[in-house]
Amino acid sequence: MGQQLINKEHITHKRSMKAFIRKHIGWLFIIVSVLAIGLFYFYPMIEAFLLSFQSGAGASLKYVGFDNWMRLFGDPSFLAALINTSIYLLVQVPVMIVLALIFSVLLNDPTLKFRGFFRTAIFLPCVTSLVAYSVIFKYLFGVDGIVNHFLLNVGAISESINFLADPIWAKIIIILAITWRWTGYNMIFYLSSLQNVDHSIYEAARIDGANAFQQFFQITIPLLKPIILFTSITSTIGTLQLFDEVMNITQGGPGNATLSISQYIYNLSFEYTPDFGYAATVSYVIVILIVFLSIIQFKVAGDKK
């Protein structure tokens, strides 16, 4: 009798042990990442936050309270950067995501010939060195560049356009450059996720008489939703932190017409007499914007929280 009781207790204990392990083993899976992120990203991030309340040249920083945050509102360079970045974001991210989706669906077709070649070619821009492609873009769109030659020859324009010296054209070129470079990159994420989609779903849909468009909108898009959410958030982050293209193609010019927030941060930290405090404040503007946009994107995607 007593023995039985102990056994029973032992069993329930064992069972609860197992339940306990199952409930908490998840932490074991994430513990390394959480510690590393905490040390290498979260802790410096807090330091940067404290820095955003300080100002001064180089190593001589002083606490200035909310001065940096107030300074943002009266800083024309910052406002220009904010507006430019918003334009890049609104125009470029949707176009790129849609293009990448189209490419990935086309290139996922097993009956397509030269698939590997096409995929590699479309992926190549994000591998191509920044140095090379900034030189190329400047040549293509120079006053006597190839694009102008072409447009003049076909009679579309009567006089060369100085693309990089015109505030609107320069922005368009930056948008083209980002799209050119990152579409293939985003395509990878879709391509890889498409493999996880069971092909029989498409077979079934085809039997039901769904055409390619219907398949795309009613099967592919809903199935890829987690990845579409992923790419929209990471592209949003990428665009808000945009630096390489601007730095290498226009350096923010003409005037401040193409300046991005990240390039302004770079200028404040390295190009001018460094003010790491104010640079940190501007960085946190990016953080706030992304947090805000990400919440919207999570909501739109209907990701259950």
Binding site: G252, P254, G255, N256, A257, N267, Y272, T273
Partner: peptide
Amino acid sequence: GQHTYAIEDIIVTGMQD
């Protein structure tokens, strides 16, 4: 001085205007 490039960025915009 210590502000050559900071001021020059402002001047570049001014030159465009």
